[in-house]
Every structure is written in structure tokens, then in C-alpha cells.
């Protein structure tokens, strides 16, 4: 069944990207968003976002998630940091059909603390990238998902 599933994911990905692009292909911003939030392999989206920039594993950014998520449709996530001046946060789930979950653009008026609720399709690594002083900092956390939240949630 993996091939059928893959085919389905690919087709749904094309559909979603098509829908996203159709309405407002003229707007560069919308195009960038559609690319970032496309349904594709995690590695493809991740590489596209980091480009040529080096990524540093860091314990100065914290990603707080449950070890076990009963319901993948609603998984609480907290992001916190001791660093001041984080400009951007990217949150990924490496097994989700749409691997980028959210992008946050912060300004100096916002303290480095954020929570959200995310969907996880299956047990996976959740990865956080933080742009800080021109550097990309990374941390990640493994979550065991009991009931998947993307196809069914």
C-alpha cells in the first residue's frame, strides 16, 4: 500500500498547490507561501527554505511538545527562547503531507514565547528553525502519535 498512498499524496499535493496558485498567481508573496506550504517531501521544503544558509543545532531555542499525542489532530506546542531578537520561526513536521506547519514573523515588541495547536499525521520529528542575527538555529522533538491527525482529524 505504500505506493498507493504515495500516489494519493502526490496527487492531492498537486491539487492543493493548484488551488493555492490559481486564485492569485500574480502575487509573489502568495506564490512564496504556496511553495513553502506545498505538499512535498520534508527534505524538499526544508532545503528550499534554508537555501544555502548554514544551520546550527542550538539549545537556546526550546520546543515543548508532549512525548505521546493521543490525538494527532490537536497537539499543543510551545516555543520559548532565552534569545532576544528572533526574527522568524519555522515549524515543521517531517512526516506531514504538508511538512511546513507555520511561519512566524516576530518584531522586537514580541517576547520569544509562543504556543499553538498543530496536526501531526503520524509519529514524527517536529523541527523548529529560528532566524536570529542572520543565523539559522535548529532544535527538534520526537512525538509519538497514537491517532493520526491529517488524513482523519
Amino acid at each position: 500500500m505504500p505506493s498507493a498512498r504515495r500516489l494519493f499524496l502526490q496527487h492531492s499535493g498537486i491539487l492543493i498547490t493548484g488551488v493555492l496558485l490559481a486564485g492569485k498567481s500574480a502575487i509573489a508573496f502568495a506564490e512564496r507561501l504556496a511553495k513553502h506550504f506545498a505538499a512535498d517531501e520534508f527534505a524538499t521544503i526544508y532545503t528550499q527554505i534554508i537555501g544555502q544558509r548554514p544551520v546550527i543545532n542550538s539549545d537556546k531555542i526550546n520546543l515543548i511538545l508532549p512525548e505521546i499525542a493521543e490525538d494527532g489532530a490537536v497537539v499543543p506546542v510551545s516555543i520559548a527562547s532565552e534569545l532576544d531578537g528572533i526574527e522568524k520561526l519555522y515549524l515543521f513536521a517531517d512526516k506531514n503531507p504538508t511538512p511546513l506547519l507555520a511561519e512566524f514573523e516576530l518584531t522586537p515588541l514580541i517576547a520569544p514565547f509562543l504556543t499553538a495547536r498543530i496536526k501531526l499525521a503520524e509519529s514524527c520529528n517536529v523541527i523548529l528553525l529560528a532566524e536570529h542575527n542572520g543565523e539559522l538555529l535548529r532544535t527538534s522533538s520526537w512525538v509519538n502519535v497514537m491517532r493520526g491527525g491529517c488524513g482523519t482529524g
Binding site: F37, A73, A102, I118, G153
Partner: peptide, 14 residues
């Protein structure tokens, strides 16, 4: 004044 932007898709919970 804009202080926070969040871009997302269908992987944020209902």
C-alpha cells in the same frame, strides 16, 4: 503597527 505575522496552512488544528 504590525507586531506579529503567522503564515500557515491546513496543518494548524481546527
Amino acid at each position: 503597527q504590525l507586531i506579529l505575522t503567522a503564515n500557515m496552512a491546513g496543518s494548524i488544528s481546527k
